[in-house]
Design a protein around this nucleic acid. Sequence first.
DNA 1: GCCGTTTTCGGCCCGACTGTTTTCAGTCG
Length: 576
Amino acid sequence: MTTNIEIATAFEEMADLLELSGENAFRIRAYRNGAKAIRDSSESIAQLIANGTDLTTIDGIGSTLAEKSVVLVTTGHLPQLEKLRIEVPPTLRDIMRVPGVGAKKAMRLFQELQVVDLQSLRAVCESGLVAELKGFGAKTQQSILQNMEIAEKAAHRLMIDEADYLVDQLRTHMQTCSAVQRLDFAGSYRRGKETVGDLDLLVISENIAMVMDHFGAFPGVHEIIQRGDTKMSIRVTDSFQVDLRVVAENSWGAALQYFTGSKEHNVHIRGLAKSKGMKINEYGVFDADDESKWLAGTTEQDVYAIVGLPWVPPELREDRGEFETGKQSIWNRLISLSDIRGDLHMHTVATDGENTIEEMAEAARSRGLSYIAITDHSKRVSMARGLNEVAALAQWAEIDRINAKSDGSFHIFKGIECDILEDGRMDLSDECLAQADWVTASIHYGQKQPRDQITQRILNAIENPYVHAISHPTGRLIGRREAYDVDLSAVIQAAKKYRKCLELNANPSRLDLNDINTIAAIDAGITITINTDAHSIANMDLMKYGVIQARRAAVLPENVLNCKSLDEIKRYLSGQ
DNA sequence: GCCGTTTTCGGCCCGACTGTTTTCAGTCG
């Protein structure tokens, strides 16, 4: 079955190839918008088509893209795309990824120097032919050569915890500059995206030169890409770009709003302003008829208020419905880290963890939690010395002894991360699982199985009366491994029917469920868990990344099982 | 190509920086 990602990818390629052909810019944008709408859709487009749903009801999909979607899903081919691929070499898209080379330059390089890919681009740069092209010049040729490495490394993005580390370093460095009056990080980092392609640093200062000098002296700086009157960009190690923007005090809110994005969110809000006779840029909100008339911009709240919106939490600024009235009343109740009362997925030295049960419990207690579940691996995960029935029962007996010594303010639940075997059975017997307080089921092996088989395995686990939750339900590892081919809507429906939980795994390399799948789960009325899957005490600090991901799906505390108090969750687990 | 509380045509977000120009095009975010 054609996935949403496959359809979106086809439309994105259409957009790129149309852009190379010099098509109308708005037509290109329509393809990109359509691709985003499909990528962001929590429902399977192929399924919608199979159900006979009219795709033009999706915002951004008109009659043309709807028809092309149907053709692609039903035949597996998109004739227009295949025709474009003949007219324009698809490998020119790689050239467009070189910073400084867009569609126009790429197409001229192709037409005048027969450049078709990065390799031939390098050749014509090194032979000096590019510098002789009208409008290119020696500097352009030189910068293309320098930037090719970045394109060859293929869009290196930082995971959210790596970005966090870099932000800390930059913040510490910039705070020692006396000219900095205020600073914050905007962009996708502020929106809490699971990976970050660059960082946007915003500063208020009256001495721009001093701030820029200080920025350029950041110890990790690799190269200064550009430096203008208000904007400067550096590259830090591993080709990662950091942008600095220095703004005046009364533009702070407008600039923070502008640079937080997303691009789609900003396009939407500026269109909204325009329809109300106003213009928004990074300096403020202005009267469209008299642009000298400044209306707002000191705070983000002011910017949103003047176009008739409440302040939008950054995590929700993706143009996924945040402008619709009716969705906004819950924003002040979005989940935050302090709502988390427990952690229901973690490992100990009994399998592949680094700490003992008591150490994990003490670490959780010191982080303000009132309960944990110890969920070591089951025997199938032999690499981690997974527990068999006897070992599991022994561990639970030990947990009973530890709990018996407790004053009752903190509780350790007897849990297991039980493998869902390749043949669809659970790794431990029902008799054993029945004695656990908490069973979370996972797939670790047979991840390449076909869709029906993988889906059926997870459905089996959901139907098992002793299983409470499914861990990392799609198995993806960000940047390393794709999700397994699972029919998640079937999983969600089953979880709904059997009142089971789905996990949002907070580990930054998992964050699984992702934001879109979490939206789908919450919309279906599923209770999720947000767990660290900690293999050490230090890993318990990863909870915040799961919470950020949940906020991106507008999750409220009542949607999350481990936001329940200890008494509440005891009642829940005893089935009352 | 999409869209509509200015609705079936005529719009579609906006500005900084660079390199190449001699007033601007291309790229980027």
